[in-house]
Amino acid sequence: MGLIYALGAYLSWGLVVPVHFRLLDAVPATSILAHRIVWSAVLVAGLLVALRRRIRSPFPLRPRHGLLALSAGLIGVNWLLYLRAVQSGHMLDASLGYFINPLVSVVLGAVVLGERLRPVQAAAVALAAGAVLLAVVLAGTLPWLSLALAASFALYGLVRKVVGVDAMVGFAAETALLLPVALGHLVLFAPPVVMGDPARAGLLVLTGVTTALPLIWFAAAAERLTLATLGLMQYLAPSCLLVLSVAAYGERLEPHRLAMFGLIWLALALYAADAFRAARRSRAA
């Protein structure tokens, strides 16, 4: 189930979410973020009521549960950066950020959690890291937006794994912590964005669905997979985002990014083949 949850999250982030936000180009990114938080809170509250007998209770609370305040801040920053990238026509920069992010996740898994990689897996990670480094060097500039996206989401994944709380309960806690800020922004600072437009109002309400479900799936996958596997699978999302940005929105794909794309997928193929062989040996044993 961990692989299914991860696929659902990454394909949603790579295809569904960017199209959704491009349909809201006329709405400021901060207003979309506030609506995302509000409607996500409404949706997850309803899900908690409906599924209360099927989720693990977080009680009694542990000191580590306080880290959910940190994860809430990290995911809020990541959402805002992603919104600005998509709305400003920098979807390729967002794609690069999420290509870099799994490498950060692998490093955090090794340094903080003590996760170990088999030799072929380590070679796959090194190949992917080299591909991203080559793209950065050839571009000639340090991609600050991409790096900020990568760091914020990798740290978020680490915190959620350490907290170890039920995926839906954790997300409910995060949205509850962010909700006062979102409501305050909508009431005090945000310009009116609906203006009698039911289609736009519907798209804003749906931000709760396209925000909450992939993140719940991601948290569920994080509980079941190693951080290294979770991180490398995340190349699915930026690959989809890269294709979408070029094919649907006309962004220019430079040769160095195309080369990076091919090398990263080669690394993924090596990693997947090694994982498959290890699973077969485990079943045989």
Rank of each mutant, 00 (worst) to 15 (best):
A128E: 10
A41H: 15
A248R: 07
R116S: 07
V169Q: 13
R252T: 13
L70G: 06
V132G: 09
R224G: 12
D197R: 06
R257E: 11
H256I: 08
L61M: 11
A85Q: 10
I37G: 08
S88W: 02
P214G: 05
V107N: 10
L51W: 14
D166K: 00
G130K: 04
A50V: 11
V120G: 04
L188C: 04
L186P: 02
P102E: 06
A269L: 15
V181Q: 02
Q87H: 04
L232G: 00
L177N: 01
T211M: 09
L158H: 12
A273R: 14
Y156Q: 03
A124H: 14
H256N: 11
P63Y: 05
Y10S: 08
T211D: 03
L232M: 14
A45V: 14
V209W: 07
Y5G: 08
P238F: 08
V27A: 08
P198R: 05
M91D: 08
H35D: 15
A9S: 15
L68V: 15
M260V: 04
L103S: 03
V162K: 13
L74P: 04
G170F: 12
I216T: 12
M233N: 09
V77H: 01
T211E: 03
G8L: 11
A94F: 01
A221Q: 02
L96W: 01
R84N: 12
S12C: 13
Y249T: 06
V27G: 01
D166N: 02
V49Y: 08
G89W: 07
T207H: 04
R54N: 14
R257K: 12
A45I: 13
L81T: 01
P28E: 09
L70N: 07
L47K: 13
R62W: 06
P18H: 05
L83P: 01
A129L: 14
A201D: 06
C240F: 14
L149A: 04
A129M: 13
V17H: 10
V205M: 02
A272Y: 08
A72E: 12
Q87N: 10
G109Y: 02
A154H: 03
Y249V: 08
D197M: 05
F189R: 00
G14F: 10
F171N: 13
A94S: 15
F21D: 04
I32A: 02
A201C: 10
D93S: 14
P180Q: 12
A29E: 14
I4R: 13
G76W: 06
L241E: 04
W265K: 04
V162E: 05
W265Q: 02
